Amino acid sequence: MTTPGYRTELTAAETKARKRKLLRRDIKRDWQLYALLAAPVAFLLIFNYWPMLGLQIAFKDYNPLKGIWGSPWVGFANFDRFFHIYQFWQIIENTVILNFYQLAAGTPLPIILALAINYAARKWFSRAVQMVSYAPHFISTVVIVGMLGLFLDPQMGLVNHFFNLFGINSVDFLGKPGLFRHIYVWSGVWQNLGFSTIVYLAALAGIDPSLHEAAIVDGATKLQRMRHIDLPGIMPVAIILFILNMGQALTTGFEKVLLMQNSLNLSTSEVIDTYVYKVGLASELPQYSYAAAIGMFQSAVGLLLIWISNRVARRITGSGLW
């Protein structure tokens, strides 16, 4: 006669053995699928997870001659150094304002454009709008900044020539700190508006047409159909994109900011990414550990913001990333 506790252990062991048997059977039956899966899994392990071992340099005084493992451990000294630099709050403020400004400007416009294209009566017109709006996305960042320099140049720029026709003095747009954020954000919206619309057009295509047919029979206008059918239908996609964008609240990408940056607008254009680039790569004595610590700080804050925004979105709308 067996005790209840022994029987429970035996049942758990039998369950594990059964699961292993089923797994072996599935692998043997569908080995081709597992073989296809092996390549991307190996890619993730080698190029995404294995390099994470190098994050330990954020807690060390990294010396290339001694290597990662041989460099002395300094704990949180690199983080403490970043938190106490005199530009800390200015850099954080510039980064947060630039990202949230970009998020506020870039979130509703693709939805509006997608709805407009979806309801366009002439298919040739909607296709033409799509092509014209998608095209700027494929222009490189360097070319975009070069175009901004040509258009906004205080001496030869097209915009200032137009101002001069009406007796308005030339404006050094890229030299004014107060104008930097507006130029950066709205040039980015213009460049990525059409491409961002693709996601919402795909979501609109997945809405059941019978809902629109019933609404038309009931006499609903286009605006009413947008409000009560289309917007609720694409809301889960919009929420997921919003949550993912929240994870980049401290990450702007340094390329465009660095190219638009100059000594005159530095008070509003210096963000975390450009600061990391300057201290980690562009300085005469690269500070790898210091730059890695700042990067880890960005990642930690981004992960926290994703978790918070997902919880808030799930509580308010009932849908989230997980």
Score class of each variant (00 low, 15 high):
203 A>Y: 08
172 D>Q: 02
207 I>Y: 03
91 I>Q: 07
106 G>W: 10
176 K>L: 07
109 L>E: 08
152 L>T: 06
119 Y>C: 13
243 I>V: 14
119 Y>I: 15
49 Y>F: 12
113 L>E: 01
29 R>F: 03
27 I>W: 14
297 F>S: 07
169 N>G: 15
228 H>R: 07
46 I>F: 14
90 Q>S: 11
236 P>L: 14
226 M>G: 11
179 L>D: 04
61 D>S: 13
241 L>T: 04
272 I>D: 03
24 R>F: 05
300 A>K: 10
225 R>T: 01
207 I>H: 07
221 T>I: 10
269 S>Q: 09
142 V>N: 14
64 P>W: 15
242 F>A: 06
89 W>T: 00
240 I>S: 03
292 A>N: 14
191 Q>M: 08
103 L>G: 11
249 A>R: 02
166 F>N: 07
216 I>C: 06
273 D>P: 11
18 R>C: 14
165 L>R: 04
219 G>T: 11
109 L>D: 09
265 N>T: 12
147 M>S: 06
268 T>V: 00
257 V>R: 07
169 N>W: 11
91 I>T: 08
31 W>K: 15
134 Y>E: 00
126 S>T: 11
315 R>S: 13
231 L>M: 08
147 M>A: 10
164 N>Y: 04
247 G>H: 07
108 P>Y: 10
278 K>W: 05
81 R>C: 07
66 K>F: 08
166 F>L: 10
238 A>E: 11
217 V>K: 04
82 F>S: 04
307 W>Q: 12
239 I>R: 14
295 G>I: 13
294 I>Y: 06
